[in-house]
Design a protein around this nucleic acid. Structure first.
Lengths: 255, 255
DNA sequence: CCTCGCTTCCGGCTCTACCGGAACGGTTAT
DNA sequence: ATAACCGTTCCGGTAGAGCCGGAAGCGAGG
């Protein structure tokens, strides 16, 4: 989360958000645990928890507070009304069925990649990527596909904001390397990820662009490294991913 | 949403929440549209929108504000850490595969049913149930299964709070009918829904209970009315749903 | 160039968010 | 039993901040 320590216009809301963050980090916690965590008096934490509870953002579980499913509800509602999601979701399913691998839809927000939707293939190895999860764009194929469609100065800005932290030994951590990689992506038309975010996982991603050529997201397929190699990884899967991306782009316009 | 008009301890937070609700209802809106909608000066709406934006709960799209995927992120994160979800999710998948229909996991929160997870079967007719969607418990099979495991006075309380509004012509709208139905559910061990929330859709649901016998959720299968009839609807599917519920209950304890 | 609608900024007044402290309630130890 | 202790809940005063009106930017359109 941003944790802008700069003064927010509405300080009380800022405090409430800190309470939410605390509950998220603590999973379940009592009033005083929350108060300690964000360094406010218990009475203050209590006021905010109660306000959140009244609005059903927080629920009591025994003698502790937990975040409710209200967040999921709002997020799910917005996503369900989203034209991109509605258009892409069925195509994701198809892609997952055809490949047997996981298919993902990513969007960019605040300079980071959001796993916006996923479809499971036959291989149901457990992914760490919960819905909505945010990652640095350069660590995924879909993210790199998006970056490749953004103007250079915007990429610079994103790198300035979020850096290039190494997640695995294969993650791109150098700025020049990144731009070189983005050149390759633009040449190929698709992006790859060879264990750059998760050991043992390979991905192929392609950007979705609007009429102006601006990226509105990206789709990708991810699977175990062993099954994702050679022609399948460099030809078959990319072709399918690109075709799917194309179908989604077209359907975005005419329905 | 609750819309507790009673005074919240932290009024500023209450206002922020109203801004969020407004954005949700308006989909995308400018400062003044939000201000009008919740009847505050534009400058106030602006302050709150800016605070939300700084914390990445709201994003600018052109010259309008929209809710960001932050809600999905928080909700998805919590769900992913949830023992019930982690345990039930793979079983849902299996159930969807075996039946070819949609499989759902519902939990109860604030007296309403939350569609907490779903797995798609082969029949991919478009459901209106986005993830996190809240419904009145008595309108779904999973919800009735949960109600059947709650003490009568709690059921009374829930009905008092949320009423028994009719959604389709088959929805239970009478209190006595509801209790009669819950008796049947307890006898059978599972609950059914014959077009009580959606025309043309039948469901079968079974509750998940903890060691104390309190319901922690319910699983259900829903499909088109035509395919969900006779032995399949009254025997085969119920058996599978009950078996799945049982597997989840056991796995909850030993892993 | 002027108008109009919207967003953004600014500063003062008043209200309220915040806090300390006290009461309450449940649990454990003596 | 009873006391001690922990966390939660309640309460009231104060000073600091949220709210608001008004004005300044800023585009779009005539």
């Amino acid at each position: 989360m941003a944790a802008e320590t700069g003064s927010a216009p509405v300080g009380a809301t800022q405090t409430t958000i800190r309470v939410i963050e605390a509950l998220r980090e603590l999973d379940a916690a009592g009033v005083s645990a929350v108060a300690d965590h964000i360094d406010v008096p218990t009475s203050t934490a209590f006021d905010h928890l109660r306000t959140l509870e009244q609005n059903e953002f927080v629920r009591r579980e025994g003698d502790e507070y937990v975040l409710s499913s209200q967040f999921l509800e709002i997020g799910g509602y917005c996503r369900n009304n989203d034209h991109l999601y509605r258009t892409a979701e069925p195509e994701l399913q198809k892609m997952a069925n055809e490949t047997g691998e996981h298919a993902n839809l990513m969007i960019e927000e605040f300079g980071r990649g959001v796993f916006y939707a996923k479809a499971k293939g036959r291989e149901t190895f457990r992914l760490d990527t919960h819905i909505g999860k945010r990652v640095n764009l350069q660590t995924t194929s879909a993210g790199k596909a998006i970056l490749a469609e953004l103007p250079d100065d915007r990429v610079e800005e994103i790198v300035d904001d979020h850096g290039l932290p190494g997640i695995t030994e294969h993650t791109i951590t150098d700025r020049a390397d990144l731009f070189e990689e983005l050149d390759t992506v633009r040449e190929q038309g698709f992006a790859t990820d060879t264990e750059e975010r998760l050991k043992g996982v390979h991905c192929v991603g392609a950007a979705l662009t609007d009429d102006d050529g601006d990226p509105i997201g990206a789709v990708s397929v991810s699977g175990p490294k062993n099954g994702m190699q050679d022609e399948r990884f460099f030809d078959d899967i990319p072709e399918l991913v690109l075709r799917t991306a194309n179908v989604i782009e077209v359907n975005m316009k005419y329905q």
